[in-house]
Amino acid sequence: MLLFLAGKTLRLLTLLVAVTALSFLLLSYSPIDPVRAYVGADMLKVGPEQWARIAEHWGLDRPPLERFTRWSLAVLRGDLGISMIFRRPVLEVISERFLASLALMLTAWIFSGVFGFALGVIAGMRQGTWTDRLIKWFCLMLASTPSFWLGLLMLMVFAVWLGWFPVGLGVPAGVLAHEVTLADRLNHLILPALTLSIIGVASVALHTRQKLVDVLASNYVLFARAKGESGLRLFWRHGLRNIALPVITLKFASLSELFGGSVLAEQVFSYPGLGQAAVQAGLRGDVPLLLGIIIFSALFVFTGNLAAELLCNLIDPRLRLKGNSFEKL
């Protein structure tokens, strides 16, 4: 197990270094001038000399390699630089924004998991019937649905027509951050979380269904039926046991899609999360923030994959008890 973790850590390190270096390299060739991000709306008031001074202040006049060296040394000390658009340390922006995103993603992760699993089980147990076809059709349609469009529909129905939720902005306008109540936050969380959940249902349900269909076609289920088991009892004893792990693994291994979905959902619902920050950083050329978010998202995805593998190794007896067979009795 220790060896396994050490190997994983090493892999993470090489990937992170490569992601960072590659991103930095790419970003340094962007035609978008980072100084503009800093200057922002004051563009017209800033003369060429001032422009040059700002560039010098940020070290933007140095060659890319030197900038990279300086930047990575700082990163090693835990300093990701200052966000140009928020004018605050990148780490601070990320941690604050991530908490908001985490609430969103976690809600969606759990709901899509639970409902997707349930739908998949129903479809799989009734394979070939109209119920199954309907669920499959629904999921395949969902899989083709642009998530931001679904978000727009949600806004249209629940915010504009029914007026149940505010149309935009993560917190009510004109209210100071510390005055925002939990109820306010929840109110703004519901629609984006719902959108993300619905989008996430498709892959879980289809995956669960396929696994269950495979399990039900297996020899051991045939034998279980020969032993007189059927219906829910059979599902409980053999179905659930054999599909749970692959489905949970899938949930962990698909954090990448969840993150991508949250970027879009946050944009549609003006939810002040990490995804929205990434979009702003990209649009306005906030290189330090964008780099920070890239590194962070890679870590996030990696954690999910690692969790998936660890779970398999800990739970699946075929992996957990490898090499521990009858000879050792």
Binding site: N219, Y220, L222, F223, R241, N242, L245, R318
Partner: peptide, 15 residues
């Protein structure tokens, strides 16, 4: 009526 199946693959691998 009981069945004696062909192989180990008729046993639930996770039970």
């Amino acid at each position: 009526i009981a069945l004696v199946p062909q192989s180990i693959s008729f046993l639930d691998p996770l039970m």
